[in-house]
Nucleic acid binder design. Structure first.
Lengths: 208, 208
DNA sequence: TAACTTCTACACCGATCGGTGTAACAAACC
DNA sequence: GGTTTGTTACACCGATCGGTGTAGAAGTTA
């Protein structure tokens, strides 16, 4: 009574396949991740995968799209939750940054390993799929953050002439240590220090 | 009369192999890059590769080390050339940033594709090799930049209490657009605008 | 019960890949 | 001239992988 199954596959099997594929694609990359291993991870027969997806490339694209959607939703939610009403700007930005970084170690962590895979195999991915990912993933998140910064600046606290660029700066500064060498994402104190330093650089840099 | 060949292989063949391997590892990644293709790219027999390297993993490690060394040398040289004697801080930092970014599109470009591969396959690379890379590559470069910033700050222009973190911030801000979405690295004007914006954010953020 | 859909297990194919063995050839060294 | 060393071409092995064919089991719908 739920949904008329159109042509192939039960929806829960499909979800299991996509979830298992995300795990293995994230860990091993597109080439290394074998379909037999994905089938085993999903608790599903090898043959069943081809009942839901025409080939490995289509499976990968589906995994990429669904994971991107979910993470972008989470990120936008964090932005809205922390930056809709701003009391003390530095405090709120630091809290926002910590929530932002927490996603990297959450159950959404595999997504970011997947992004590193995409980044590496960029030249082997169809440009259209790449553009779609940029638009629905980092692009959307960045625009959302930019819009929030624009409103905050309008309130008179910051001087931002290019909100999108400023959003990029903030995102980078928040996770600076994490990007350059490897920060310990589980040391709460070091994490807060990193975020605070980044936020302060951002704030002083864009102070009116 | 040059050098006593110790055990195996002529040095020029070896160099050709490493160069060809860099090209293919950078483009296709460790798994996708086949040894036959590498041999063809190097203009060398498949069998000859095994005369110089015991297996694919050792070849990859050699490629990684040599490329890292060369790029780090280049980066340190750029730092020294632009930030030894500072006249106008913003101008000099922008010029430095542009020279820094120019490396990304130089003949050293494959190295950065290789780094993306490393970043993706991190969980499949021996931790010792990873640590060595961080130390001789980005670590060295970052420390060198940090030292320069420390001296500049000492001169009284900036307030930097953690030079290494500041160096990280500067490196990220310089290439901000390039890291978040894809900036056109060949549009000279857009490039200068990106670097200038990053440098200004850095300078205002660390202004004494 | 009968018709239909989906899943599973298994065998299988062709291609690729990392790596080896071998024998012939070229060049440097004694 | 003879020996040694390195290179090459080629055939080959075992393993893995993407993908298919098939037959039957399991569950759903009428």
């Amino acid at each position: 009574m739920t949904e008329r199954r159109k042509s192939a596959g039960l929806p829960d099997k499909r979800r299991a396949i996509v979830a298992g594929a995300l795990t293995l694609f994230a860990r091993d990359g597109y080439t290394r991740a074998g379909l037999d291993a994905i089938a085993a991870e999903a608790g599903v027969s090898n043959r069943t995968i081809y009942n839901h997806f025409s080939d490995k490339a289509e499976l990968f694209q589906t995994v990429m799209q669904e994971s991107t959607q979910r993470v972008a939703d989470t990120m936008v939610d964090i932005i809205d939750r922390h930056l809709s009403k701003v009391a003390d700007l530095e405090t709120d930005l630091v809290d926002f940054g910590l929530a932002w970084l927490a996603v990297l170690t959450s159950d959404l962590a595999p997504h970011f390993a997947l992004i590193r895979q995409i980044n590496a195999e960029m030249e082997h991915i169809p440009p259209a799929a790449l553009a779609l990912w940029r638009e629905t993933g980092p692009g959307r998140t960045r625009r959302e953050l930019a819009e929030r910064l624009r409103r905050i600046a309008q309130r008179g606290d910051l001087a931002i002439d290019d909100p999108v660029r400023a959003a990029g700066h903030l995102m980078l500064l928040i996770s600076a240590d994490n990007l350059t060498d490897r920060a310990d994402l589980h040391d709460e104190d070091a994490l807060r220090a990193m975020v605070t330093a980044g936020v302060r650089t951002f704030l002083y840099g864009y102070k009116r």
